[in-house]
Lab assay of single mutants.
Amino acid sequence: MAMNGTITTWFKDKGFGFIKDENGDNRYFHVIKVANPDLIKKDAAVTFEPTTNNKGLSAYAVKVVPL
């Protein structure tokens, strides 16, 4: 089920960042999981599918909501 969130941290040079989800949890995401990576920036609103990996909470099918 899709969730909403906000990008809180973005490491462009490393290709990953973190999203604060609607429950207040931080989720890892990688640029290859983003549909529109050219719009990635700190504080951008996103929708995504929540999941977990071996390191904890993460996100896939991430879409940055255009302003």
Rank of each mutant, 00 (worst) to 15 (best):
M1V: 13
M1Q: 11
A2N: 12
A2C: 13
A2D: 08
A2G: 10
A2K: 14
M3D: 02
M3S: 05
M3P: 03
N4F: 11
G5Y: 02
I7V: 08
T8D: 07
T8H: 09
T8R: 10
T8M: 10
T8L: 09
T9G: 09
W10T: 01
K12P: 14
K12G: 09
K12H: 09
K12Y: 08
D13T: 11
D13Y: 10
D13I: 09
D13R: 09
G15L: 07
G15M: 07
G15Q: 08
G15D: 05
G15S: 07
F16D: 02
G17N: 00
F18S: 04
F18G: 01
I19V: 04
I19E: 00
K20H: 12
K20P: 00
D21E: 01
D21C: 03
E22P: 04
N23L: 09
G24K: 04
D25H: 09
D25L: 08
N26L: 15
N26W: 12
R27G: 00
Y28E: 03
F29W: 02
F29I: 03
F29V: 04
I32P: 05
I32C: 15
K33S: 15
K33V: 15
K33P: 03
V34H: 03
A35R: 10
A35H: 12
A35N: 08
A35W: 12
A35I: 15
N36R: 06
N36A: 04
N36C: 08
P37K: 07
P37L: 05
D38F: 08
D38L: 10
D38G: 12
D38A: 12
D38I: 09
L39D: 10
I40T: 03
K41Q: 11
K42V: 15
K42G: 04
D43L: 10
D43S: 10
A44Y: 04
A44Q: 06
A44I: 06
A45E: 08
A45P: 11
V46R: 01
T47Q: 09
T47C: 09
F48V: 00
F48I: 01
F48E: 00
E49C: 15
P50E: 03
P50C: 05
P50Y: 03
T51R: 13
T51Y: 14
T51A: 14
T52F: 12
T52Q: 13
N53L: 08
N54F: 10
K55L: 12
K55M: 12
G56A: 05
G56W: 09
G56F: 09
L57E: 04
L57N: 05
Y60T: 15
A61Y: 09
A61F: 10
A61H: 13
A61C: 13
K63I: 13
V64A: 03
V64S: 02
V64C: 04
V65P: 02
V65R: 08
V65K: 10
P66G: 12
P66V: 14
L67S: 13
